[in-house]
Write a protein that binds this DNA or RNA. Structure first.
Lengths: 238, 238
DNA sequence: ACCTGAACACCGTTCAAGT
DNA sequence: ACCTGAACACCGTTCAAGT
């Protein structure tokens, strides 16, 4: 709620690329990505829609800029994208880096959605990827193994992974009773898991725990592969 | 290009939910998801837009139906969603099932994009998930471990995972030379990997190989966990 | 240099009508 | 029962203008 004095005293802060991007992140944080439109962004900046186009060529460019801003946030959170001096072990370093990225992503839950369409690497995102590769390298993994590792990690390396089932139990989120026959294993698992996990953050899963479980599964597997053959782990030719 | 005889002889095939869904898949296969609009779908069906709304309530419902159709295709491809009799081992069974799903997904590359927003499970998709759980169960894994396994697999269980870098090398897809200093590890990896992998399907990765690498990494890790403690693998309390 | 108004070519969807 | 026309409330973006 801006004061009338603030509003009537003319535009104090001029429109800049940076201010557009900052406000874009605020808008998406507050309203979600579906409500993010050029018109609403302009409204929040107290400006006409077309003014945005003077500072940024189009909506895609705004998304590009916003993604870079988020990686700048990650850079700050994890204390820079330099590769650590492998004092604590590469697995621990990488784990911490990725969990740091995850913290930032959790504050901007709409970012994964726009990140996945965006294959072109911005500089900061590339710097992040570079630091992950560097950390794996500091552990003695070959570039070839690292390459596969990057694919194995997938979006988990950015601190998120896809949700597979619905959180909210409205509608028929719960499985109807007569489906117990056609979905015996799903029903069986839910019965056990629901009971075991009363203090979960969402419906029935502790997201943070599950994320770390999957991450560790992969990191442990990579460590085993790296140890088994050092520089040239066995790759099935053809 | 429909013949004039075909067009002038009146509407032969009436509009049905099934025909709408079938045509929707054809349209998305042919033009991609961005070009998929209600208006274009109607045009392809030789019908006015509003006719679609008689058979399906809205666009979301079309996506829901389309996703179910795709899982019907997967059901057919993998020879049914029954849990195999663990003759060949659960890892092999599950691997085959998931790679079968992947084959179908590769024929409809727009499906992953609409699947990830869709948390509500349709019946066929739930049957697929159930069969994956059942296959893990046939290997003696506890429901608790299976639950974590589902999260670890993530979208890989449906036969896809996110692409992390751009395929096309237009624009600045290639890394400019002066960036070699700020991205030493990325540059280092690309130098090795590009050279090693001349017969890759895309820019520099063999997607199929990478997918299977990541899948096996996870399946092997799960097998190790299951063996280490049978029914109750150690879970870090708190 | 920076911002804007009017307009264009699209969307998904509602509602009242046609046959 | 099945299909349609006109209209509404939105989009992102172009282009020619304002200051």
């Amino acid at each position: 709620m801006t004061s009338t004095a603030e509003r009537s005293s003319g535009r104090r802060t001029p429109l800049t690329r940076e201010r557009v991007l900052r406000t874009a992140i605020e808008l998406a944080d507050a309203s979600g990505i579906d409500a993010f439109t050029m018109r609403r962004l302009a409204e929040r900046l107290d400006v006409e829609v077309m003014s945005l186009y003077y500072h940024l060529p189009n909506k895609e460019a705004i998304f590009d800029g916003v993604v870079e801003s988020v990686f700048a946030e990650i850079d700050q959170r994890v204390g820079g994208f330099e590769v650590p001096e492998t004092d604590a072990g590469w697995k621990t370093s990488l784990r911490e880096r990725i969990l740091g990225a995850r913290e930032v992503m959790l504050e901007h839950p709409w970012v994964p959605g726009i990140l996945e369409g965006r294959t072109q690497l911005g500089l900061l995102r590339a710097r992040y990827v570079d630091s992950v590769i560097g950390t794996l390298r500091s552990g003695g993994l070959s570039y070839d193994l690292i390459h596969h590792a990057m694919h194995a990690l997938g979006s988990r390396m950015f601190g998120f992974s896809q949700e597979l089932v619905s959180d909210d139990d409205d509608g028929d989120g719960d499985i109807p009773e007569q489906l117990a026959e056609t979905l015996p294993h799903l029903v069986g698992m839910l019965a056990v898991v629901r009971h075991d996990d009363p203090s979960s953050t969402l419906g029935w899963c502790d997201d943070q725990f599950e994320f770390e479980f999957g991450l560790d599964l992969i990191l442990d597997g990579l460590e085993r592969l790296a140890r088994s053959d050092g520089e040239s782990f066995p790759r099935t030719a053809s």
